[in-house]
């Protein structure tokens, strides 16, 4: 049972990270206002939300299974307060920080109609901090964190996220960028 929890804790962490990478990519696409080939804009937004919720579910399983596991022995404090854990406290603490940021982003997203666009947007920016922190946590804390295949996965993920960010800040990011620039000239 313990072995199973430990293995599941590790696998669910990796799945969660991959899903969050997808969430960021689809989120950037949604922000551009562009459809994805034949997928309309509202579906892109729904896909962004659904991958994010799935990633969060795996993150909860990741943390939950390692709380139950007698080897990792995460306790409630470790889940909320970073850098106090006994094993690699710094790297585990990064995971705690990422987890707290995810909670903030998810809660404000689900309540966005009540809290309004400003708060929603401000908190949503945390994602750009959360993702690299989560990646660093995976590399520094994960049992497979420095194995070759994981580093390849991490490098590939980082490359696509950086690519998406470069596109995000480029002049032609918005679907209507050309028209809008034209209007100002």
């Amino acid at each position: 049972m313990d072995n199973a929890l430990w293995a599941f804790g590790r696998v669910s962490g990796i799945i969660s990270l991959v899903l969050f990478t997808g969430t960021v990519l689809v989120g950037v696409l949604a922000r551009s206002g562009r459809p994805l080939l034949v997928v309309p804009r509202f579906s892109v937004t729904l896909i962004h939300r659904n991958i994010a919720l799935l990633a969060t579910a795996f993150l909860v399983l990741h943390v939950g299974s390692l709380m139950l596991d007698s080897y990792a022995k995460l306790n409630v404090t470790d889940v909320v307060v970073p850098f106090l854990g006994p094993f690699r406290p710094f790297w585990q603490g990064l995971g705690t920080v990422a987890f707290d940021l995810v909670l903030a982003v998810v809660v404000t997203s689900l309540l966005r109609h009540r809290i309004g666009p400003r708060t929603f947007r401000a908190v949503h920016w945390f994602t750009y901090a959360m993702w690299p922190i989560a990646l660093a946590h995976a590399i520094g804390n994960g049992t497979n964190g420095t194995s070759r295949w994981f580093l390849l996965l991490a490098a590939g993920s980082a490359a696509v996220v950086v690519g998406a960010l470069a596109w995000r800040v480029s002049a032609n990011f918005l679907e209507t960028a050309k028209t809008r620039q034209g209007g100002l000239l």
């Binding site: 206002g33 309309p40 804009r41 509202f42 937004t45 679907e175 028209t179």
Partner: peptide
């Protein structure tokens, strides 16, 4: 004042809404 012309609504309500050049 809030809308940024992202065009989700014009996709969902094509018979009611037009989209201008700025989205």
């Amino acid at each position: 004042t809030r809308c940024d012309g992202r065009g989700l609504c014009t996709e969902l309500l094509p018979t009611l809404l037009d989209r201008d050049d700025w989205g």
